[in-house]
Amino acid sequence: MVVRERFHGDLKALREKLVEIGSLTEKSINKSFQALTEKDVEAALAVIDEDYKVDRLEEEINDLAILLIAKQQPVAVDLRRVIVAIKIASDIERMADFAVNIAKSTIRIGKEPLIKPLEHITQMHKLATEMLSLSLKSYYEEDIILAKKVAEMDDQVDSLYGETIIELLNLAKEKQEALPQITQLLFITRYLERFADHATNIAESVFYLVKGKRYDLNE
C-alpha cells in the first residue's frame, strides 16, 4: 500500500510539472507575440533568455518518468500515463521553441513599421494558445471530447495559415523592398501553424492515454 501511495504521489508530481511547463510555454508564446505587435525587441530578448526554464523542466519530467518506470514498473494505464507525460513534455518544449523563433523574427524585423495589419496572424495566435490550454485541460481531465475539439480547431489554424501565406506571397510581388520583413512574417505564420500541430499531438496523446491506441487527429 505504501509503495502504491508513493507511486501515485510521484504521478501527481509529474502532472504538476506538466502544469508548470505548460504555463511557462503559454506565457512565452503570449510574450513573444506581444513583442511582435509592439515591436518590442527587449521583450523578445527576454523570451529567448527565459527559454532555459522550459528546457530544464522537460529534463526534470523525463528524469522523473524514467525513474518511475525503473522503480515501479507500472503496467496498463499507469504505464501509459508515464509515457504520455514524456511525450507531452516533448511537444510543449517544441512549442516553447516556436515562441523563441517568433521572438527572433521580431528582433530581425526590429522597429520597422509592419507592412500590413496582422489580422490573420493574430487569429492564428489566439487559436493556437487556446489549443494549448484546451489540450492540457483534456490531459488533466483525461477528456477525449476536449481533445477532439483541439483537433477541430487545428483545421481553422490550417485554413488561416493557407490564406496568410498566399496574402504574404502576393504582397512580396508588389513590395519587393519589404521582402526581408515579409520573409519573417512568413516564418512566424509557419511557427504558429506548427505550434498548433503540437497542441494536436497532445490531444492525440490523450486519446492514447484513455483508449490505449493511437489516433491520427490531423487527418
Results as ranks from 00 to 15, higher is better:
residue 154 D to N: 13
residue 210 V to Y: 09
residue 103 A to G: 10
residue 212 G to R: 06
residue 143 D to P: 11
residue 115 I to H: 11
residue 63 D to H: 12
residue 132 L to R: 01
residue 87 K to L: 12
residue 41 V to L: 09
residue 40 D to R: 05
residue 81 R to L: 07
residue 171 L to A: 07
residue 91 D to Y: 09
residue 1 M to P: 12
residue 211 K to Y: 02
residue 177 E to V: 13
residue 96 A to T: 07
residue 43 A to M: 15
residue 30 N to L: 07
residue 96 A to V: 04
residue 46 A to L: 14
residue 172 A to G: 04
residue 66 I to K: 11
residue 73 Q to W: 04
residue 41 V to H: 01
residue 11 L to Y: 09
residue 48 I to N: 02
residue 200 T to R: 03
residue 105 S to Q: 08
residue 113 P to Q: 08
residue 108 R to Y: 08
residue 114 L to P: 06
residue 54 V to P: 01
residue 168 L to I: 07
residue 74 P to N: 05
residue 3 V to D: 15
residue 171 L to V: 08
residue 38 E to R: 13
residue 205 S to F: 06
residue 146 L to Q: 08
residue 131 M to N: 01
residue 218 N to C: 10
residue 35 A to M: 05
residue 17 K to G: 02
residue 37 T to R: 13
residue 173 K to E: 14
residue 158 D to Q: 08
residue 193 E to S: 02
residue 123 Q to L: 12
residue 208 Y to L: 12
residue 142 E to A: 15
residue 182 I to G: 01
residue 32 S to M: 02
residue 171 L to Q: 10
residue 61 I to G: 07
residue 198 H to F: 00
residue 114 L to M: 11
residue 99 A to V: 04
residue 157 V to S: 00
residue 111 K to F: 08
residue 165 I to L: 15
residue 116 K to A: 11
residue 64 L to D: 10
residue 142 E to V: 09
residue 216 D to A: 06
residue 101 N to G: 09
residue 95 M to L: 03
residue 102 I to R: 01
residue 69 I to K: 05
residue 19 V to K: 10
residue 70 A to Q: 13
residue 108 R to I: 13
residue 60 E to C: 02
residue 111 K to V: 07
